[in-house]
Computed example of a mutant assay.
Amino acid sequence: MNFNTFAVSACAVTLSLTTASVALAQAAAPARPAAAPAAAPAVTHGPALANVCVVSIEAAIGGSTVGKYVDTRMQQIVAQVNAELGAEKTTIDNEAKTLDGQRTTLDQSALEKRASDLQVRANALQRKAQQRDREVSATEQKAIARVGQELEPLIRQIYQQRQCSLLLQRSAVVIANPAMDVTPQVVAALNAKITQFAFDRERLDQAQPAAGAR
Rank of each mutant, 00 (worst) to 15 (best):
I158C: 06
N177V: 03
S137M: 08
Q131E: 13
G101S: 09
V66L: 04
L118W: 04
A87Q: 10
Q160F: 03
S109P: 00
S21E: 10
R114V: 01
D200W: 03
S16Q: 11
R114H: 07
Q126A: 15
A179R: 12
L106I: 05
R170K: 15
D117Y: 06
A124E: 14
Q119P: 00
A23V: 04
K193S: 09
F3D: 07
I175V: 14
L125D: 03
V147T: 08
A176F: 10
T90W: 04
A40Y: 07
L190I: 06
Q119R: 15
D181Q: 03
A29K: 11
L106N: 04
F199R: 01
T90G: 01
M1V: 11
K193Q: 12
L168M: 13
L15R: 08
A87I: 00
A87W: 00
A50N: 09
T139F: 03
R146Q: 12
Q163K: 15
Y69V: 05
S56F: 00
A129Y: 08
R121Y: 00
V54I: 15
Q163S: 11
D181L: 02
A124F: 08
T98F: 01
A129K: 05
A28C: 07
T44V: 14
P33R: 12
L99R: 08
A124T: 13
N123C: 00
G62S: 06
R32P: 09
T183N: 04
Q163P: 02
A115V: 01
P37D: 06
L125H: 07
F199P: 05
